[in-house]
Write a protein that binds this DNA or RNA. Structure first.
Lengths: 345, 345
DNA sequence: CTTCTCCGATGAAACGTTTCAAAGAGGTGG
DNA sequence: CCACCTCTTTGAAACGTTTCATCGGAGAAG
């Protein structure tokens, strides 16, 4: 019935012997309706299985009471944790949160954004494939609040990010402190902001400490399978040039890399130290518990949703904010103890 | 502008100097419109930043071109993998897929279902907290196609499931074959169907092989943290009664349990063998690679979405189908080699 | 008995689309 | 010059709500 023949308020009104307006009042302003009438109408609603048509309601002027979070990779627990944070805020505000998975695909992201705009959602949280996509700015300009999550922004929207350059620095500094001089970076594509920034941070630390230039093993995506592939390439490097440590753009890559190292008989951390990024829950449960750069995931989501609400409600007077959190290094077994300096070629 | 003052087709028509109907035709039946007019209208659309109002469109009669998957726990990679499968089918059909996370919370699930029905989505995929929830049957009866994923169903909807009793049997049989006689089950709450079925399967195997009755360590949720807690309880059991193996209701629990075992100095698989369920990607990357009962996750999602489409399109003539897949045991290090029979008390 | 108030219920307008019958324009053939 | 087509464009109706000005009736106050 929710299909073609779904009962409408008109049907309810007819059955209850009242006018359309009264049915509406029962639904939206029950205090204006007499007890007797309200019961009759309610009975009709139940009998017919009436379900309010949200399209009509929204058309007439109600908001959509809906928010969406467009993520980069729903299979990455980092994003579902961020989403859980956003959910808390949305719940409290009485908004429903829809998760949309762009899967690192620009087209799909574009399709989602178009649809969300057409549906007039209250706002969009997004960890974009490409934050410079003009579509995002256009969306915001036309009046849909957009908050970038985990990615910086221009003046077009608010953003909530974690300092990725600092994160890269922390990771590399840690490895350098342990005595590593030849370090690999695993991650890609390089034009993804997070990846670029983490490389920048790592290079900064290396420059400061005087290590060898970063060996970048670029990947096509940021998942476990790519980590395994990178592991093969890593192991294939001539022993004289092979780095003694790997800094991965996220924990999925690190876990894949780790798995492949074990598989190929390289010991972690003795032969290769590994640092991941995000500190997802699985990092601690890994074959060798993973040293990782932790981000305040839930907090990220919560804060982003708060900014979104502020913008959606602030209507006119609203200035975009950029909130920056600091990452923290969590040291575990995958980087082990200090290396003896002489083991470095 | 997408807010209050968003330009409508009327504005576009005025600016282009044509009628409303013509603008609509440009959008929906461009072949009916002369080249010259079409260009003028398109120019007006671009100039005004017009975005079609989906509510009005849908109200007038178009469908919503939207499908939702309500999951039990978005943080569990099992569900995001299922979702990825559903996404494939949805994409091919030109439908957008929204992910809704009920987080094992009945109220939130109910809120999502209400909203989705009001929005007149084309259909709902759901892994319900409680498949017997009358709300689900009501939803289907009122005309919104509902397909249960990973959970059985009455005659009210289609379903796509994996044989959980068989899965439990496979897991327990494996452990029994290895010589274990005292086996623990970790998982809960017990009124969740998957949990109950997996217990049933395990008990069936034990009865057949003549092991001791299953020791059930019931958990409140099915996540890593609960697995760790269960690990403490497990380790706290008097050595004489402590099981030599644990079968976990899912991989998250198994990973948490494993982590806690390692933490408390119990060796896996020597002191405790562990079997997980779902075979998520992280299972293979665990501290001790996890033996697990694999389910065809992507396939599950793809098939479910196909059934949903079939029902949504089949309109009248549609009979509900129940598709059952078989799980497969994947053996890894966490269960190790055959035990010497005499080590059992 | 009349006038005022107050409460509850009413009906029409409006939201932004899509569709469809009908009108207009321009050309062709008789 | 008229009748007839074809190709475009038009205008109105309809979708299901919410809102708001209005109306009727029942008491209360005068």
């Amino acid at each position: 019935m929710s299909g073609p023949g779904a009962p409408s308020m008109k049907d309810v009104a007819a059955r209850a012997g009242v006018s359309l307006g009264t049915v509406s009042n029962v639904l939206n302003h029950p205090e204006l309706v007499s007890e007797r009438t309200r019961r009759r109408v309610q009975a009709a609603i139940d009998a017919l299985g009436f379900v309010r048509n949200e399209s009509a309601r929204q058309l007439r002027g109600g908001g959509s009471r809906t928010v969406a979070y467009v993520v980069f990779d729903a299979a990455n627990p980092f994003f579902t944790d961020v989403a859980a944070g956003a959910q808390v805020t949305a719940d409290a505000a009485g908004l429903a949160l829809f998760l949309c998975n762009s899967g690192e695909d620009r087209e799909r992201q574009a399709a989602y954004l178009d649809l969300l705009e057409q549906q007039r959602v209250e706002g969009v949280l997004i960890t974009p494939v490409d934050p410079a996509d003009p579509r995002l700015a256009a969306l915001a300009r036309r009046g849909t609040p957009v908050v970038l999550v985990d990615r910086g922004a221009g003046d077009e929207h608010c953003s909530v990010t974690v300092d990725d350059v600092l994160g890269g620095d922390l990771a590399a500094t840690h490895l350098l402190d342990l005595g590593h001089r030849r370090i690999a970076f695993v991650g890609g594509p390089r034009d993804i902001g997070q990846v670029a920034d983490r490389i920048t941070g790592a290079e900064r630390a290396i420059a400061r400490a005087g290590g060898e230039p970063l060996t970048v093993l670029e990947t096509e995506k940021l998942n476990i399978a790519e980590g395994r592939r990178a592991g093969e390439r890593f192991a294939g490097l001539p022993a004289t040039r092979r780095p003694t440590a790997a800094f991965c753009a996220n924990d999925l890559l690190a876990l894949g890399l780790l798995q492949q190292m074990v598989h190929l008989g390289l010991r972690v951390p003795e032969d290769v130290a590994i640092v991941g990024y995000d500190d997802i829950e699985f990092a601690a449960a890994a074959a060798v518990p993973l040293t990782s750069v932790a981000q305040p995931r839930q907090r990220l989501g919560r804060t982003a949703a708060e900014l979104l609400l502020a913008e959606a409600r602030g209507l006119a007077g609203h200035t975009h904010q950029h909130i920056l959190f600091a990452p923290e290094l969590v040291v575990r077994a995958s980087t082990g103890l200090r290396r003896v300096a002489t083991t470095v070629a």
